[in-house]
């Protein structure tokens, strides 16, 4: 049985953070630069022991930790995976992190996990289902969670509710907070041919407990229209930094994470992205 880690950090600071990668462990412990908190993917720390858990214990003594789930399948048609929910409850129990978040998406169907964040139609039926699942998660883990807006590549003919309204309604019904991924807004708006700034204006920023910034890839659809893909494999692009600045000025300073999950760079490159967020955070009152 794992010992409880004493709670040292009640909340993420309104400062830059990065997605933690084990290859950066020594550099982060030595000099984290502008990085004041770390995010981990919950599923990578659900083993019984060994180096991952030991490193996480060290990090958690020094940094506020955000646990970001990628496997709960909150938008799934089927009931939530009880075993997985129990593992999550155990991780959040011993780690006692500053924040826990998941996605408005689904990834499991018919007991198979697809390792991708799959899209949902925005209807009254899916709204009710997502809310029921979030109620169940928050009940099971005994804390409030944040729900992240998705990157989308296509639209459902059956959708009836705008995404911003859908997310606001989920938060209103379940009491959950929101995670605002600025790159996802840019990706979806480009792919859906909508205005990303209207999306920010319509988003309930007062419910946002964390911001994500990441890179994307560029492709084209069958008709030559731009098709952006949320890949977390490169630098954040300038238009996304501009949207981030606008978001901060509108909603105030927030904990702001650089996500870089594929082709992970050397630590100085990641720290430089965090420094860019730091400079924009400095423009708004903490």
């Amino acid at each position: 049985m794992l010992d409880a880690t004493p709670r040292r950090f009640d909340a993420l600071p309104n400062r830059p953070g990065v997605g933690y990668k084990p290859q950066h462990f020594a550099e982060i412990m030595e000099d984290p630069g502008p990085v004041d908190w770390l995010e981990i993917h919950a599923e990578n720390y659900m083993g019984a022991g060994g180096r991952p858990i030991a490193q996480l214990r060290h990090l958690a003594e020094r940094f506020p930790i955000s646990v970001h789930g990628v496997g709960l399948s909150i938008g799934g048609e089927a009931p939530l995976d009880a075993e997985h929910l129990a593992r999550l409850r155990q991780l959040l129990g011993w780690l006692n992190p500053a924040s826990f978040s998941e996605h408005l998406a689904w990834s499991t169907h018919d007991s198979h996990f697809f390792n991708d964040l799959l899209p949902l139609p925005y209807t009254e039926a899916t709204l009710a289902r997502v809310c029921a699942h979030i109620d169940q998660v928050q009940e099971a883990v005994g804390r409030r969670m944040l729900l992240e807006n998705p990157s989308t590549y296509l639209a459902f003919a059956e959708s009836q509710i705008p995404e911003t309204e859908f997310l606001a309604e989920i938060a209103a019904r379940t009491g959950c907070g929101l995670l605002f991924d600025v790159n996802n807004v840019f990706v979806s708006a480009t792919n859906q041919k909508t205005d990303p700034y209207s999306y920010i204006d319509a988003f309930p920023l007062h419910l946002v407990g964390e911001i994500h910034l990441g890179g994307h890839d560029e492709d084209e659809d069958d008709h030559g229209a731009p098709l952006l893909i949320d890949s977390h494999g490169c630098e954040v692009v300038d238009p996304v930094w501009e949207m981030y600045r606008y978001t901060l000025q509108k909603g105030g300073a927030k904990p702001s994470l650089i996500e870089w999950d594929n082709d992970v760079p050397e630590w100085p490159v990641l720290a430089a992205e965090a420094a860019r967020a730091d400079a924009l955070l400095a423009e708004v009152p903490a």
């Binding site: 909508t194 659809d221 069958d222």
Partner: peptide, 16 residues
């Protein structure tokens, strides 16, 4: 599953 013009999603689905 559609593109913004209401046409079939095609390659957009291939992303998934």
């Amino acid at each position: 599953l559609l593109d913004p013009e209401g046409r079939p999603a095609g390659r957009r689905f291939s992303v998934y």
